[in-house]
Structures are given as structure tokens and as C-alpha cells.
Amino acid sequence: MPLAFLRSGDMANVVRVRGKGEVHHHLENLGFVEGAAVSVVSEQAGNFIVQIKGASVALDRSVASKIIVA
């Protein structure tokens, strides 16, 4: 399911990042790679703050929808 479906406090593992190009590459550089644990710190109005590999990252709903988690 897409990361955008998670709510504050939820945890999951990255399965894959959909899409190609610049956004895909940028997300991989931030740590969104297969098997990485991600937790949602907060979610408001479709914007997310997530914790991944010890860093906090802000994502909007369209970008969060590209990240598939389980």
C-alpha cells in the first residue's frame, strides 16, 4: 500500500518506490530503499513527516503515494 495511507504513529517497511527520474532518485538518496523501516511522525492535511534511517523527512501526499510500504 502507498505510504500516503499510513497515519501518525504507524510503522512499515519500504517495498519499492514507484516512478522513474529525478523524484525517484531523490527519494532513494533520502533512504527510501527496499527494506528500510519508516514511521509516520505526523500527518496533517495530506502532508507527512516521516522518520527514516534516523532522519525526519517531510513529504506531500503525491510523493508519499509513490512510496509503496508493507
Score class of each variant (00 low, 15 high):
residue 1 M to S: 14
residue 1 M to P: 13
residue 2 P to D: 06
residue 2 P to H: 10
residue 3 L to Y: 02
residue 3 L to R: 03
residue 4 A to G: 03
residue 5 F to N: 10
residue 5 F to P: 02
residue 6 L to Y: 04
residue 6 L to A: 03
residue 7 R to L: 12
residue 7 R to K: 15
residue 7 R to V: 11
residue 8 S to D: 13
residue 8 S to V: 05
residue 9 G to K: 04
residue 10 D to W: 04
residue 10 D to Q: 08
residue 11 M to I: 14
residue 11 M to N: 12
residue 12 A to K: 04
residue 12 A to I: 06
residue 12 A to G: 04
residue 13 N to C: 11
residue 13 N to D: 12
residue 14 V to D: 01
residue 14 V to W: 02
residue 15 V to R: 09
residue 15 V to C: 09
residue 17 V to M: 07
residue 17 V to P: 00
residue 17 V to K: 03
residue 18 R to M: 11
residue 18 R to E: 15
residue 19 G to T: 07
residue 19 G to L: 05
residue 20 K to I: 15
residue 21 G to I: 09
residue 21 G to N: 13
residue 23 V to Y: 04
residue 24 H to P: 04
residue 25 H to S: 15
residue 25 H to R: 15
residue 26 H to T: 13
residue 26 H to R: 13
residue 26 H to D: 14
residue 26 H to L: 09
residue 27 L to H: 01
residue 27 L to E: 00
residue 27 L to R: 01
residue 27 L to T: 00
residue 28 E to W: 10
residue 28 E to Y: 12
residue 28 E to Q: 13
residue 28 E to I: 07
residue 29 N to S: 13
residue 29 N to M: 14
residue 31 G to L: 08
residue 31 G to V: 02
residue 31 G to M: 06
residue 32 F to G: 00
residue 32 F to Y: 07
residue 32 F to P: 00
residue 32 F to K: 01
residue 33 V to C: 08
residue 33 V to W: 08
residue 33 V to N: 14
residue 34 E to T: 13
residue 34 E to M: 05
residue 34 E to F: 09
residue 34 E to I: 08
residue 35 G to C: 07
residue 35 G to V: 08
residue 36 A to G: 07
residue 37 A to V: 12
residue 37 A to S: 14
residue 37 A to G: 06
residue 37 A to M: 10
residue 37 A to D: 10
residue 37 A to T: 14
residue 38 V to K: 00
residue 38 V to A: 05
residue 39 S to C: 07
residue 39 S to G: 09
residue 39 S to D: 11
residue 39 S to T: 09
residue 40 V to G: 01
residue 41 V to G: 01
residue 41 V to P: 06
residue 42 S to R: 11
residue 42 S to N: 10
residue 42 S to Q: 09
residue 43 E to T: 05
residue 44 Q to K: 14
residue 44 Q to S: 07
residue 44 Q to V: 12
residue 44 Q to A: 11
residue 45 A to P: 04
residue 46 G to F: 06
residue 47 N to P: 02
residue 47 N to S: 08
residue 47 N to G: 06
residue 47 N to F: 11
residue 48 F to A: 02
residue 49 I to A: 14
residue 49 I to Y: 05
residue 49 I to V: 15
residue 51 Q to H: 13
residue 51 Q to F: 12
residue 52 I to Q: 07
residue 53 K to R: 15
residue 53 K to P: 05
residue 53 K to M: 12
residue 54 G to T: 06
residue 55 A to T: 09
residue 56 S to G: 04
residue 56 S to K: 12
residue 56 S to A: 13
residue 56 S to W: 11
residue 56 S to P: 03
residue 57 V to D: 02
residue 57 V to Y: 04
residue 57 V to E: 03
residue 57 V to H: 02
residue 58 A to C: 09
residue 59 L to A: 02
residue 60 D to I: 03
residue 61 R to S: 07
residue 62 S to P: 03
residue 62 S to E: 10
residue 62 S to I: 06
residue 63 V to H: 00
residue 63 V to Q: 00
residue 63 V to E: 00
residue 64 A to G: 04
residue 64 A to H: 01
residue 65 S to Y: 03
residue 65 S to G: 02
residue 65 S to K: 06
residue 66 K to H: 11
residue 66 K to A: 08
residue 67 I to Q: 01
residue 67 I to Y: 01
residue 68 I to P: 05
residue 68 I to H: 04
residue 69 V to E: 01
residue 69 V to T: 03
residue 70 A to D: 10
residue 70 A to M: 13
